[in-house]
C-alpha cells in the first residue's frame, strides 16, 4: 500500500509537466484551430534562452521572465512567418508546416547550444517530501510545478471566458467571417493566441527542463504525451488537458511501478483507443460528436 501511494504521487508529479505542455497545445487549437507540433520545439528553444539568462544573472526568476518574453516573441514570429501565410492549406498542410518548424528549431538549437544535455536549476530544492515519516517520490519542486499549473489554468480560464479579449479570440477561431463582421480584428486575435500559447509553452519548458534536463530533443516525448492528453481531454478544454495530462502521468507511473516499463506505452495506446471510441470528441468537449 505504501508503494501505491508512492507510485500515485510520483505519477502526479510526472503528469503535471505533461499537463503544462498540453495546455499550450489547447491554447493554440482554441485560438487558431491548428495542432501545433512545433510547440515542444518553441518551449525547448525558449528554455535555452532562459537558461542563458540564468547563467548570466544567476537568478531563476529572471530566467523565467526572459523565457516567457522570448516565448511570446517566438510564438508571434512563427505565427507571422509561417502560420498566417499557411492558412490557405488544409489541416494536413498545417500539421506538416508546424512539423517543419519543429525540425528547424531543433537544428538551430543544436547549432547554437550543442546537443549535449544540460542541467537546469530549480527554484526549490529537488528533494522528496516526507509524509507520515517516509520520503515519497514527490518533491517540493513538483508541488511548486503543480501550483503553477493550477494558477495558470485558473488565469487562462478567466482570460478566455470572462474577458472581452478571450471572447474575441474564441470568435475569431470558430468563425472568422462572423467575428470580422462584428468588428473583431481577427488577424490580431490569432496573433495574440499564438503569443499567449508561446508564453505558456515557455513556462512549461522552464518547468520541465530541470526534470528532463535540457537538450534539443529531450522534450520530444512530451509532445506525444501532451498531444494524447489534449486529444483525450477534448482539444477545446483547458481542464480536460490538465486532467488527462495528470492521468497520463499516473498511468505511466503505475504501469511502470507494478508491471514493467515496456508495458507503459502499450497500456497508454489501449486507453487512448478506448477513450476515443467512447468519447470521439474528447471527454471534456462541449460539442456532441457528429452523428454521421
Amino acid at each position: 500500500m505504501g508503494s501505491f501511494l508512492d507510485y500515485f504521487l510520483g505519477g502526479i508529479a510526472n503528469g503535471a509537466v505533461i499537463a503544462l505542455m498540453a495546455l499550450a497545445l489547447v491554447l493554440v487549437w482554441r485560438s487558431t484551430r491548428v495542432v501545433n507540433f512545433a510547440q515542444v520545439g518553441q518551449a525547448m528553444f525558449t528554455s535555452f534562452i532562459a537558461l542563458t539568462a540564468v547563467n548570466i544573472t544567476g537568478s531563476w526568476l529572471i530566467g523565467l521572465i526572459v523565457g516567457i518574453i522570448a516565448g511570446g516573441i517566438l510564438g508571434f514570429i512563427v505565427h507571422v512567418l509561417v502560420m498566417r501565410p499557411v492558412r490557405r492549406a488544409d489541416a494536413s498542410g498545417a500539421i506538416i508546416a508546424t512539423f517543419g518548424v519543429l525540425i528547424a528549431l531543433q537544428s538551430l538549437a543544436a547549432m547554437i547550444w550543442t546537443a549535449e544535455p544540460r542541467a537546469y536549476p530549480t527554484p526549490i530544492e529537488y528533494a522528496g517530501l516526507t509524509i507520515f515519516g517516509r520520503v515519497v517520490p514527490l518533491t517540493g519542486y513538483d508541488v511548486f510545478v503543480f501550483i503553477v499549473m493550477i494558477v495558470l489554468v485558473l488565469f487562462l480560464t478567466i482570460l478566455l471566458t470572462k474577458t472581452k479579449l478571450g471572447l474575441s479570440m474564441r470568435a475569431s477561431a470558430f468563425n472568422p467571417e462572423v467575428a470580422r463582421l462584428s468588428g473583431v480584428r481577427v488577424s490580431r486575435m490569432l496573433a495574440i493566441g499564438w503569443i499567449i500559447a508561446g508564453m505558456v509553452g515557455a513556462v512549461a519548458g522552464v518547468l520541465i527542463a530541470p526534470i528532463s534536463s535540457l537538450s534539443p530533443n529531450t522534450f520530444d516525448i512530451f509532445l506525444v504525451f501532451a498531444f494524447t492528453a489534449a486529444v483525450i481531454g477534448g482539444l477545446d478544454s483547458l481542464v480536460g488537458a490538465v486532467a488527462f495530462g495528470i492521468g497520463t502521468g499516473l498511468i505511466l507511473s503505475l504501469v511502470t511501478g507494478y508491471s514493467d516499463a515496456s508495458n507503459a506505452p502499450i497500456v497508454a495506446l489501449i486507453l487512448l483507443a478506448l477513450n476515443l471510441w467512447f468519447k470521439p470528441d474528447g471527454a471534456f468537449s462541449h460539442h456532441k460528436a457528429r452523428s454521421v
Binding site: W29, I95, V224, T228, V231, L235, L272, A289
Partner: peptide, 16 residues
C-alpha cells in the same frame, strides 16, 4: 468516428 485532430491523435498513438 473521429474528426481531424482526434484522428491525428489516434494515429500518432499507433505510430508510437
Amino acid at each position: 468516428r473521429l474528426r481531424g485532430p482526434y484522428l491525428a491523435g489516434l494515429t500518432l498513438g499507433v505510430a508510437v
